[in-house]
Amino acid sequence: MLATNDSRSEAKNEACGLEPGESKELVWIDVCAMDDVLPGAGAAALIEGEQIALVRTMDGVLYAISNFDPFSRAFVIARGIVGDRGGVPKIASPIYKQSFDLRTGVCLDDSNVRLPVYPVRVVAGRVQVCPVPRRVA
C-alpha cells in the first residue's frame, strides 16, 4: 500500500512490507494513471498474465490485491465495494460478499482464506505494481 501523497516516501517501503532499500530490487511495472482508479473504488489490471485489482480507499490509499475471488472462483474482486471494517481497509467480493483485508489479503470472514497482495506505488501520477506477491507475516 502507499499513501498517494508522494512526500510520505519513507512510509512506502514499510507499508509494502519491504526492508528499507529493498525496493530498488523490485521490478516495478507501469500500469495506469492514478486517475484511472476512482477514490473509494477498484479497477482490474492485467499485469504479466496476473489479474490484479487496484483499490483506492476514500482517504486516498492505494492497494493491489489479487482479482480472483476464491469463493465464486471468478475474477471480480476489483468490482467489489471498498470500505472498512472496524478501521481495517477492505474490499467485499461482488458475488457472495466476503471481505478481504486490503493490507494482507486475509479474508475477514474466513481467516483460512487469503488472497495475494502486491507491492504498489505511485510515481508522478502513474501507478506502478510489482506483480510478485508480497510475503505477509
Binding site: L38, S72, A74, R79, P94, I95
Partner: peptide
C-alpha cells in the same frame, strides 16, 4: 456520477446483472 459510482453494487455500477462467472 464520479461521487456515486463507487457506492454502487456491481450491478448498478455496470448497469447489468452479474452472473456466477463474473
Amino acid at each position: 456520477k464520479k461521487e456515486h459510482a463507487g457506492l454502487q453494487d456491481t450491478n448498478d455500477r455496470y448497469l447489468a446483472n452479474i452472473q456466477r462467472d463474473g
